[in-house]
């Protein structure tokens, strides 16, 4: 599994893990994000069961297992959190932050040790070392209980399925040509995102944030002006169409 550093400061570091060459062909590729401070680490959307072993092996390059104190699940899908039953035994003292709406569902993945920390609809925030991570509501994009993670200091928005693209082959990490990239995103957003109202509300709120990087759970990451281009494109897109 490839690991790339997205941000590094004295207080914390962002690393994206993904593009696993050993991934079974029919499984959708996912980006997992590790944020680590000197003594703590959080994994955002740790991924599915199939990815657990390469993820564990990849993460141990960067962090001691006992330092993984927190997991975050943007929503309840299996590609996001079906590995929970395995993490539950690997980091039994960790906490899982996830939408309150999905607690009874996510527990089906197996959770005897990890503590479920329900995130209220209006969002919230946690501290990781000296860094603050904000849970930004992204309900109905696509899941009815859904959050992004915003780091005001790193100016990174982990946007979950928003901005996701479906490409095959050895895909670059960053979007370099937005117009060309639309073909990989358009169907996904039209089909998976059910509500124009929720989408417009999200766009309005996210435009208020200072963002250098928008990091989705699938496909390429948006950097610099590509973020604004995405927001403009997404604002105009008619979603909820099969």
């Amino acid at each position: 599994m490839k690991a790339t550093e997205l941000f590094n400061s004295e207080s914390h570091q962002w690393i994206v893990l993904g593009r696993d060459p050993a991934k079974p062909e029919k499984i959708i590729d996912t980006n997992q994000y590790l944020i680590k401070s000197a003594e703590e680490a959080i994994i955002l959307d740790p991924g599915g069961i199939e990815l657990f072993s390469p993820m564990l092996a990849g993460i141990l390059h960067h962090v001691q297992i006992d330092n993984i104190t927190t997991l975050f699940a943007s929503h309840q899908d299996p590609d996001i959190i079906s590995s929970l039953g395995l993490w539950d035994k690997t980091v039994p003292n960790a906490k899982l932050y996830a939408p309150w709406l999905w607690e009874g569902f996510i527990r089906h993945f197996g959770m005897e040790n990890i503590q479920y920390m329900p995130i209220k609809d209006e969002g919230g925030e946690i501290k990781l070392g000296h860094a603050i991570l904000k849970f930004i509501p992204a309900h109905y994009l696509h899941s009815s209980g859904n959050f992004n993670v915003y780091d005001p200091s790193a100016k990174i928005l982990m946007s979950g399925d928003i901005g996701a693209s479906l490409e095959h082959g050895d895909v670059p990490l960053f979007v370099d040509n937005f117009a060309e990239h639309i073909q990989y995103m358009e169907y996904f957003h039209r089909r998976w995102m059910p509500s124009n109202r929720a989408k417009n509300n999200w766009v309005a709120r996210v435009r208020e944030l200072d963002i250098d990087m928008m990091a989705p759970q699938h496909g390429r990451i948006f950097k610099g002006e590509m973020v604004a281009e995405f927001l403009e494109w997404f604002a105009k897109l008619d979603v909820g169409i099969a």
Binding site: I49, S53, P54, L60, Q64, I65, L86
Partner: peptide
């Protein structure tokens, strides 16, 4: 579940040998 975890840890160990994985 324990058997599954063992299986996954063995796979992780074949990707990267790490004392932490051996402990797990």
């Amino acid at each position: 579940r324990c058997t599954d975890l063992q299986h996954q840890l063995n796979k992780a160990n074949s990707i990267k040998q790490h004392k932490c994985i051996v402990t797990l």
